[in-house]
Each structure stands twice: as C-alpha cells, then as structure tokens.
C-alpha cells in the first residue's frame, strides 16, 4: 500500500514538428495509499499516455513521479516494474505464450522470490498452485501447459495474477477486460476487485465502461486533453449516476464528444 504522487507531468510527442501533440498537459494527481481510482476519458485524452509515463516507457518533458516515497522519475522502465504491476487490453501482452503457466508465474515472481538455483522450484510451485486455485479456473492442474494454449480470459486472469504476484506498490489496469467476452470480463473484474482488496493495492484502472467506472473503486477521474477534467470521490461519487456523469463530462470538456465507445456505452446503459 503506497502513495502515488504525480506533479506537473508534461509531455509533447514529436515536439517541433507539424505533428506535435500535447499528450500530458501539466497533470498532477495524488493517490492515497489503497486508493482504487477508475480513469475515464475519450480516445486521445491521454489515459494510456499517463500510464506509459508512470511505467517509464518514455521520458517526460517535465514533472515528477513519486511512488511510496521514492522518486522514480529517472528510473528505467524495468527498474520501476519492481514495484508496479500492469495489465493491458491484449491478453497476449502480459504473458509469454511458449512458456508454461508455472514458468510465467515464476518469471513474474522473480522480482520478490527468494534466491534459488532453478527458476521453478517446489517451494514456489506450492505457492503458485494456491494462487491459481483461487482463480477457480482449474489452472492449478495445468501448470505445465503452455500459456499460448489458454483462452483469452484464462490468459488475462493468469496475467492479473502475474501483475500482482510480487506485491506491487501500484497496479495499473488499461482496459484489461475490453477484449474479453461479457461473461469472462465480469469474472476478471470480480477477480480484480478481490485481489486489489485483499492486497490493499493502490490501483488505477482505465475503462470505457461508465457503470464499472462508478461501481468499482473509491474514486473516479475523467481525463481530457492531457489533463484531469473531473475528480470525484466519496459521497458525491456514490450519488452520481451514469447519466449525471455524462452530463458533467459534456459540461467540463466543452467540446464535442466524438468517442464512439463512450456514446455507445451511454446508449447501452442509459
């Protein structure tokens, strides 16, 4: 459980060219330890850029990232990954397809595992089996199966375990259920909630599902043009309906909502 403090993050891609795009515009955010923040915003609002900035996929033009009291702004991506777990929309991204489930978990666990000669060993295996059985997908009996043979949902569930296996200080979820069928997505979301609660993780979750955004976690932010346009939590958030949120979204952003997916989820739920 750790505090995440982002101060004045700024990033322009292709600066000095006609294609210059201001992706993060002096963005600041303070996430208290144990905060579960859902992140909304139309395409190009800077949600994924924000995640990539935290993950260290590119250098910021300006700004500071402090996680659990440590300034990680200058750390390399793999160094930050010691304390950050992440999961993306594509289940393929988080797992190695030609390695077994057990090897995948062992690799993810390398961060915090005690030293051992072989990567896969009896002590860790018992722990992995226990973790896998908590998924209730029967994967604990298939630890020697190649990851690539699992379905998208199974892979994403396994990837979620991998992202949280090393007790990260921060968990980043980028639409991690968007590529799954509704039933599986529901299951993975439930699993997410359960894992985040059990480990008291500080967590940011990007979603296009407004319902889920309001139901899950304790705080919701809406991003627009590289900034946080709306930040609601507590009682105000509990009272908020999807329709209210859309209305405020329109009012705040002051420009046309041209995101099909948000409009779509609006028509589905409204």
């Amino acid at each position: 459980m750790s505090e995440l403090i982002l101060t004045g993050l700024k990033k322009t891609f292709e600066k000095g060219t006609p294609n210059a795009k201001l992706a993060l515009d002096d963005l600041s955010l303070k996430a208290a330890p144990g905060d579960f923040i859902t992140v909304l915003g139309s395409n190009g609002a800077g949600k994924s850029t924000l995640f990539n900035a935290i993950l260290g996929k590119f250098r910021l033009d300006r700004g500071k990232i402090i996680l659990g009291g440590t300034d990680i702004t200058r750390q390399k991506d793999y160094q930050r990954a010691l304390n950050i777990g992440c999961l993306f929309q594509d289940p393929m991204r988080g797992t190695a397809p030609h390695m077994t489930i057990e090897e995948n978990l062992a690799l993810a666990y390398t961060r915090k595992a005690s030293r051992s000669f072989f990567a896969v060993n009896r002590r860790d295996s018992a722990y992995f089996r226990e973790l896998l059985s908590s998924l209730k997908l029967g994967l604990e009996d298939r630890m020697g199966t190649q990851m690539g043979l699992l379905s998208g949902g199974q892979r994403q569930a396994a990837a979620l375990l991998m992202a949280t296996i090393a007790e990260p200080r921060l968990l980043l979820l980028d639409e991690h259920t968007a590529a799954l069928d509704p039933g599986t997505a529901e299951k993975v979301l439930a699993l997410t909630r359960q894992l985040v609660e059990k480990k008291h993780l500080t967590c940011l979750m990007i979603t296009h599902n407004m319902q889920a955004a309001l139901q899950m976690g304790n705080r919701t932010i809406v991003m627009d043009r590289g900034k946080i346009a709306l930040d609601i939590s507590g009682e105000a958030r509990q009272k908020l309906s999807v329709a209210d949120l859309l209305q405020r979204f329109h009012a705040m952003s002051g420009h046309d909502l041209d995101d099909d997916r948000i409009l779509l989820s609006q028509s589905k739920q409204g």
Binding site: Y78, Q79, A81, G94
Partner: peptide
Amino acid sequence: EMVRSSSI
C-alpha cells in the same frame, strides 16, 4: 515486454 514488466 512481459520480461520488462517483470522488472528484469
């Protein structure tokens, strides 16, 4: 990518 995100 998975290797990097496993802090290796």
